[in-house]
Amino acid sequence: MNRQDFRFFEPLRVRWSEVDLQKIVFNAHYLTYFDIAITGYWRALAMPYAKAMEQLEGDLYMRKAGVEFHASARWDDRLEVGMRCARIGNSSITMAGAIFRGDQLLITSELVYVFADPNTQTSRPVPAPLRDMLQGFEAGEAMLDVRTGDWAALGEAAASVRTEVFVEEQGIAQEDEWDEADATAVHALVRNRLGQPVGTGRLLQDSAGVARIGRMAALHPLRGAGIGQAVMAALEQAARDRGDTQVVLSAQRSAEDFYRRLGYAPNGEPYEEVGIAHIPMARSLVV
């Protein structure tokens, strides 16, 4: 195997607790590395694993795990774990993995999962939507469907994401989450290949030529998968289409770096709202 065999890589760094008396990674930890990469692979597919398996009425169970050692990783090495779907059978999915240090191949693996009934653990055929998602990702197809529209069209799905993120995860009171602005805002909604809503945001008119983006939310298991960027791109385009030249927003401080990477800069003093630290930020839409 080489790096060109993989679309997906999970970055890792070897911790002191993972090396043995030979000062190399203890062999059992490599299976943990591959398991971490599998979780990252589902994230790259924009698939919240538990919700997806519930919708598909099954779950994946490990049938076989094989590891081949070519060279050793050592403490503090920066590693990249490549993962790809190598084969889909009737009820099985074979994942091929490889661990690289730079361009050097260290470890390879073959992981075989069986799709099965979670109650009886008897095998079932791999559902067509899951099969299509895996094959589509490996073929380089988009995993996200992004749409903009009004609350009547997108509100129910957008509300499910906002409820999970703001109300259930962050503990914001229901009465603080919902307001009359939803009725007049442009909303963006991201769905995955299973049709599940996974991200949302809204666009308001702050003042003449100035748009305001808010209520940005992506499901927790999928953060880092590009969902937030997709929402921002859709809302910024909607702002351009109506002639806005600037976008402002109130960023939670934990997300400040995310917005900085998208070209936003602080535009006022930090403040607290609903018990959460925020900072005003802005970006010009004029090229």
Rank of each mutant, 00 (worst) to 15 (best):
M133I: 14
D117A: 00
L111V: 08
L144M: 15
L130D: 00
T148N: 13
A139M: 04
Q121Y: 10
T122E: 13
T148H: 05
L134H: 00
V114R: 00
P129G: 10
R131H: 14
T122P: 04
E110R: 15
L144E: 10
P127E: 07
A139S: 13
E110P: 01
L130H: 01
A128M: 11
T108V: 09
A116G: 13
G136C: 10
R147S: 14
R124I: 00
V126S: 04
V126L: 04
L105Q: 06
P127V: 05
N119L: 13
V114M: 11
T148G: 12
Q121T: 12
P127S: 12
L134T: 11
D145F: 06
L111W: 12
E110N: 11
I107N: 02
T148E: 08
T148Y: 03
Q104S: 11
G140Q: 10
I107W: 00
S123D: 08
P125E: 10
V146D: 09
Q121W: 01
L134K: 03
T148C: 15
E110G: 07
L106V: 09
P129D: 12
F115D: 05
A128Y: 06
D145V: 12
V146A: 12
Q135W: 04
S123E: 11
V112S: 03
T108G: 07
T122A: 11
D132Y: 08
D145C: 12
P125Y: 01
P127Y: 00
L130W: 08
L111E: 00
Q135R: 09
V112M: 09
L111G: 00
I107S: 05
R124S: 06
F115G: 05
N119W: 01
Q104R: 15
P125M: 09
L130Y: 03
Q135I: 08
N119R: 15
L144D: 10
P118F: 03
G136K: 03
A139K: 05
V126Y: 01
I107F: 05
D132P: 01
N119C: 05
V112K: 09
L106R: 05
M133S: 14
T120K: 10
Y113S: 05
P125A: 07
Q135G: 15
V112L: 14
P118M: 01
M133E: 06
L111A: 04
F115L: 02
Q121N: 11
G140D: 04
R147M: 14
T148M: 02
M133C: 14
A128W: 06
L144R: 12
S123Q: 10
Q104N: 09
P127N: 12
E141L: 13
L105K: 02
S109Q: 04
Q121D: 02
G136W: 10
R131W: 02
L106A: 05
G140C: 08
I107V: 15
L130M: 13
